[in-house]
Amino acid sequence: MKSKSQTVTLAGERFESLQALRAIAAVAVLIFHLRFVELRYLEGHALLDWLGRNADAGVDLFFVLSGFVMASISRGKGSGPSAARDFLTQRAWRVVPLYWMFTTLVVLLMSVAPAMVNSSYADQSIAASYLLIPHQQLPVLAVGWTLVHEAYFYLVFSLALALAYGTRQRLSLFAMAWGSLVGFGYWQGFDEGAPTASVVFSPLTFEFLAGVLTGLHWRRIPPRFGSLLFITGLGVLLLAAALLPPSDSEFNAPLRRVIHLGLGSALLIAGSALLETSGHRPNRLLIELGDASYSLYLSHIFVISAIGRMWGHFLPSAHWLNHGFFLLFTVFVACLSGNLIHKRIERPLLDLRYRWKAAGTFR
C-alpha cells in the first residue's frame, strides 16, 4: 500500500504533478549549492559558474507550491480553533523531526570536527535554529532559513483558519489583506530592521500568497489552458533565471526577483494541475524524487560537501570532463541519498503519526 505521505492530496485527489515540481525545485537548489562546491574544490573554470547562478529559483518554486498546497488542503476541512490546531500539528510533524535530526548532526560536527562546518556557525544561536526563530545569522543548518519563513507562513495561515476564514472567498480576502500589510511594511523599509521584521515583511511572502490564491482559484480556469499556462510559466522561470543578476548580487532587487520567479512558478503550478486533471501524468522517477524532496533538501549539503572535499583532494583536474563527471556523480549520489533517507527515516516518521492518530493516542 502506498504511504499517505508520498503524494500531495488535494480535496481527495492525488496530484503527482506537484510532486514532480517538488523534485525539480529540490534539484535546482542542489545545483545552486553544488556551484559553490565546484568553485571551491575543483581547479579551472566551473561549469556551473553561470548555469547555476540563479538555480536557487527552486526556493521560489517551493514557496509558491507551499501556498498552493496549504490553500487547497484547507478547503472542505472546516475552520475555527480546532482546524487551526490540527493544521499546525500536521505541519509541525511534517517539518520539524527531520529538520531537528539534521540540525543535530551539524551541532555534533561543530563539536567534534569544527573544520568541516562553516566557521560563522560559532555566532549562530543553536536554540533559535532548533525553534525556527528569526535571528541575525542563518540557522546552523543553513538551508533552514527557508523553514523559518515557512513557520511564519503556517502561523499566519493558521490564524486565518482560526478566524473561520475557511471558505475560498474569505481566504482570498485574508490573503490580499496580508499581502497589503506586507507590501506596506516592505515599502516603509521594515524588512531591513530586526530579524523578525525582516521575515514578517519579506517579499518572499508574496510567493506564498501567490500560491494560496492560485490554489484557491485554479479550478475556475478551463483545462484547455493547462498547456499554455505550463509553457508560459516555464518560459518565465527560465528567462528570469538566465537574465536576472545572480541572487547574491547587489543589483538583484528582492522584489523584482520575487515578481518574476513567483509569477512564473504560479503559472507553472496551475498549468501542471490543469494538465493532470486532463489525464497527463509526470515521469515516475520525478514523482519518486518529489516524494523524497524534503529529505533531499535537508541532506544534500552534507553529501555534496563530502564529495567535493574528496574529489578535490584526489581528482582536482581542471579538465571540463572531470568537472562534468563530478557534477553528474554528485547529483546522482545526493538524489539517491535523499531517496534512501526518505524511505528509511522520513516516511516511517510520517506514518507513525497516522498510526498514533488511528489508535487515538495522537491528534
Rank of each mutant, 00 (worst) to 15 (best):
K2G: 10
K4E: 13
R14F: 07
L18E: 05
A20R: 11
V27A: 12
I31P: 05
L34Y: 03
V37M: 05
L39N: 12
L39T: 10
G44D: 04
H45K: 14
A46V: 01
L47T: 07
W50Q: 15
A55S: 14
V59W: 02
L61G: 02
F62T: 03
F68H: 02
V69N: 03
A71G: 08
R85W: 06
T89E: 08
Q90Y: 02
A92N: 03
A92I: 06
V95Y: 00
V95W: 00
L98M: 12
L98H: 01
W100I: 00
F102D: 01
T103P: 01
L105E: 04
L108N: 06
V112K: 09
A113Q: 15
P114A: 11
P114W: 08
S119V: 11
S120T: 15
Q124M: 11
S125L: 08
A127M: 11
Y130P: 01
L132S: 00
Q136C: 13
Q137L: 13
P139G: 11
V140N: 14
W145M: 07
H149N: 13
H149M: 11
S158T: 03
L159N: 01
A160S: 12
A162I: 03
T167H: 11
Q169W: 14
M176N: 02
W178T: 07
S180M: 15
G185R: 07
D191L: 13
E192Y: 13
P203Q: 11
T205Y: 07
F206R: 10
E207Y: 06
F208D: 05
V212F: 03
T214M: 14
G215E: 08
F225S: 08
G226T: 04
I231E: 07
G233V: 09
G235H: 10
P245T: 12
P245M: 14
P245N: 09
E250G: 11
F251R: 13
L255T: 05
V258A: 08
G262L: 06
G264D: 01
L267W: 03
L268E: 00
P282Y: 06
L285N: 12
G290W: 07
Y297N: 04
S299T: 09
H300D: 01
H300V: 06
I304K: 04
A306G: 07
A306E: 07
A306Y: 05
I307L: 14
I307N: 00
W311Y: 03
G312Q: 01
H313E: 06
F325H: 01
L328V: 12
L336K: 15
S337A: 15
H342Q: 12
R344N: 10
E346P: 02
P348I: 05
D351T: 01
R355C: 02
W356E: 02
A358M: 04
T361M: 08
R363S: 09
